[in-house]
Design a protein around this nucleic acid. Structure first.
Lengths: 107, 107
DNA sequence: TTACTATTTGATTAATTAGGAAAATGGAGC
DNA sequence: GCTCCATTTTCCTAATTAATCAAATAGTAA
């Protein structure tokens, strides 16, 4: 693999990796309902501000969200709309797995 | 967040996490060209067999690939076709970022 | 059964990631 | 200037992940 090919895969993987955490995925889903300040996001996910802030910076670094200042608040928004399409597809697969899990537990 | 909601996000995140490694992403792209044995995949990605095997088990656990035995060989195939659609979308974003990076380096 | 091939698993180590608490930053308003 | 507010960064510790090598497994064929 060429260095350029390698860098392409690395950047691409970074996007998936950023989405590969329940809290961050929750934030992405929440941001579908529109631009939010950190304080709103904190309330939604229910954990320490400092923790949320760090997760947001991961999302930002990978290009999934962007932020802007509005007075005292920092507003975050989604910048990769297609992420939602895929998330929806994965959702279906996951729902199926959850159903399978339950079936196993019942059996 | 309810426990069920939590479990849903956890499973969903697991899929993204599985895709969040350059080597595994390379394997997924390679498997677009059809079912392959471990030996072929090893040749493609160019690293230790045991390492590839472990990465394959991560992909399998998250439901992205499935395997079957054929004689001595184990054949792997993609089982989540939509993963490719999203990968294509991310690709475009990443290409733009790569171009930006180069622009910065030139400047 | 023995030898061989393809793959997985286990043990170890190094590196990265996640979370909480406290300190630091950057604007807004007095 | 100082003070408040929203957010980020730093420091620390615990947990997870990745890579390599060696050993184990599972099927094939003599």
């Amino acid at each position: 693999m060429s260095p350029h090919e390698n860098e392409r895969l690395r950047l691409k993987a970074e996007v998936f990796k950023a989405m590969g955490h329940p809290l961050r995925l929750g934030v992405i889903e929440y941001l579908q309902t529109g631009e939010k300040c950190v304080c709103e996001i904190v309330e939604q996910v229910g954990t320490e501000i400092s923790n949320v802030s760090k997760h947001l910076s991961v999302l930002k670094k990978s290009g999934i969200v962007a932020d802007r200042r509005e007075g005292l608040k920092i507003m975050y928004r989604l910048t990769m709309p297609c992420a939602l399409d895929f998330a929806r597809c994965v959702e279906n697969v996951v729902i199926k797995r959850l159903e399978d899990q339950r079936a196993v537990m019942v059996a």
